[in-house]
């Protein structure tokens, strides 16, 4: 009851109940219309825009006392944004937190989808900076809404066309547009396109919150999520030449880590939980054991 005393000035999970109900209604609508951007009355949060205010509001609205929360930023549990949001919910909701993907019931993320396949019952909450995939081609909100309503998505392919014309291939590597359940084109937020296939028919519920833009959208479990492409330039995910330097994992998304100022570098799992779990299971990468010393 000690913690309860600390919480006296806050409602559970910071937001008042009316606000949570308002956001839940928006979430329900978003689930009912997969990929459609539902406007909601985004609140001021005790953190700046760009720090995940949309994701935090969504998490606050779906979070219950029995949930176990995991927060990642760039796949890592220990980066500033992840640490501060995790601490925020520990303080205002007193929920259990974890870094383990499998143990979490709610995962708030900024850039990545965990490597470990999500299961039924889990909720993945994305922090979204710019929800409108058509924005950079059509600046008028009135027009983009109309285009969504009338399913006029030729413009999305114009963007991909430009990519191929300039680079010889589709060079968009993140925020790669997808079509949800054959209807709405959706921006998966700044996740790398490497993660796009994980959204397709995922068992977990995926919720997207954009605080500054005041939009919520969702991909319910088992929903088709198809990345846009051309017949002669099909969608492809990034491929990495070498495995994770620490755990030896292949077919995972890797981050480049600079080791020293002499050009030394290594590629390691962006998903820190996944990497640690593999190392605990005895998997060893070619730099495992050396890296910490060199880094120091």
């Amino acid at each position: 009851m000690n913690t309860h005393a600390q919480l006296a000035t806050y409602n559970f999970a910071y937001l008042d109940e009316q606000t949570k109900r308002m956001i839940r209604r928006a979430i329900l609508k978003a689930i009912a219309i997969p990929g459609y951007q539902v406007p909601f009355a985004s609140r001021e949060m005790p953190m700046p825009y760009g720090w995940g205010t949309g994701g935090v509001q969504v998490t606050a609205s779906v979070l219950g006392p029995d949930d176990t929360l995991k927060v990642i930023d760039q796949g890592a549990d220990d980066t500033t944004n992840a640490v501060s949001i995790r601490a925020f919910f520990q303080k205002v909701a007193n929920v259990a937190v974890t870094t383990s993907t499998a143990e979490a019931t709610i995962i708030q993320t900024r850039h990545r989808i965990p490597e470990e396949t999500l299961k039924e019952g889990q909720i993945l909450v994305y922090q979204v900076p710019i929800p409108e995939p058509l924005r950079f081609l059509e600046p008028r909100e009135t027009e983009t809404r109309k285009m969504h309503a009338l399913e006029e998505y030729g413009l999305m392919h114009v963007k991909l066309y430009e990519d191929i014309a300039k680079n010889g291939h589709i060079a968009t590597t993140y925020a790669y547009p997808v079509k949800v359940e054959g209807r709405y084109v959706m921006d998966p937020s700044p996740t790398p396109k490497f993660d796009n296939p994980k959204m397709h028919r995922s068992e977990a519920l995926q919720l997207f919150g954009a605080g500054r833009e005041k939009r919520i959208y969702a991909v319910p479990p088992y929903t088709d999520v198809v990345s846009l492409d051309f017949e002669d330039h099909p969608f492809e995910i990034q491929k990495f030449d070498e495995p994770c330097a620490l755990c030896g994992a292949r077919n995972v998304y890797l981050d480049e880590v600079i080791l020293n100022d002499k050009g030394g570098r290594m590629f390691v799992c962006s998903d820190t939980d996944h990497c640690e779990k593999r190392r605990a299971e005895g998997h060893v990468g070619h730099l495992a054991g050396e890296a910490p010393e060199t880094a120091q």
């Binding site: 030729g154 392919h157 002669d232």
Partner: peptide, 14 residues
């Protein structure tokens, strides 16, 4: 020039 083609469902870049 290609936008209208893509708008009516043409999906072959070449």
């Amino acid at each position: 020039v290609g936008e209208r083609l893509m708008a009516i469902g043409d999906r072959h870049y070449g």
